[in-house]
Amino acid sequence: MKILVCITHVPDTTSKIQFTDNNTKFDKNGVQFIIGPYDDYALARAVELKEQLGATLTVINVGEAETEPTLRKALAIGADDAIRVNAFPSDSLFVAKQIAAIAKENNYDLIMMGRESIDFNGGMVHGMVGEMLGIPSVSPVMKLEIEGDTVKMAREIEGGKEHLEAKLPLVAGCQEPIAEWKIPNMRGIMSARTKPLQVVDPAGEEIATEVTTYQLPPAKGTVKLVDKDNVEELVKLLKNEAKVL
């Protein structure tokens, strides 16, 4: 059993989002980068499956050299080896192509990743990889069990969840509560330093979409406070001023 987990390298959720160079580049100044929170759920579940089934677990990232600490962290959490496709992840189709190319070479049984990245929020890579490999893709998966070659999953839908089954191989876009985030321990951190991290060249370079400029939303005005003993006033404001009732 071979599992591949795709890892995004994204700004920490508390980062202040700013841009430089005439709003054409993300401002990395003072920003800490982390494993995407959804990918972190996928990774945590993959580590559990690895232990339960004796699987091998590879992590992959499409990114430049700066993402290696993020991949090392995934190794510290429990992956056996890592692959970095040495390219700027310009859009989801490009990233999916890289992942599919690696997957074709290595025949993974299960490919897991977050339901979406928290920078561009596309939520597309899992579906694209599934289509490129001609295998099912399911997202957002909140429960995943493997019995033989059958994958039993629960998928979140608007207002509830759906239980479904499919055979391996499969691509899953994951979210909580599939597993709890794992924090690397000292032994994991030590062993991660010497685990293999392979750097490979990208396959093709066609770019379907490209960001030309970034923009921040307009600043929010100050809050209008209403006395707690005068809630009728709030209802009036919502009706007559904000016009939302």
Binding site: P11, F120, N121, T209, Q215, P217
Partner: peptide, 15 residues
């Protein structure tokens, strides 16, 4: 909309 609603990106589409 990108960064979970914290920014926008003008995106050119080449296909």
């Amino acid at each position: 909309s990108i960064y979970t609603g914290k920014a926008f990106a003008e995106t050119s589409v080449n296909k």
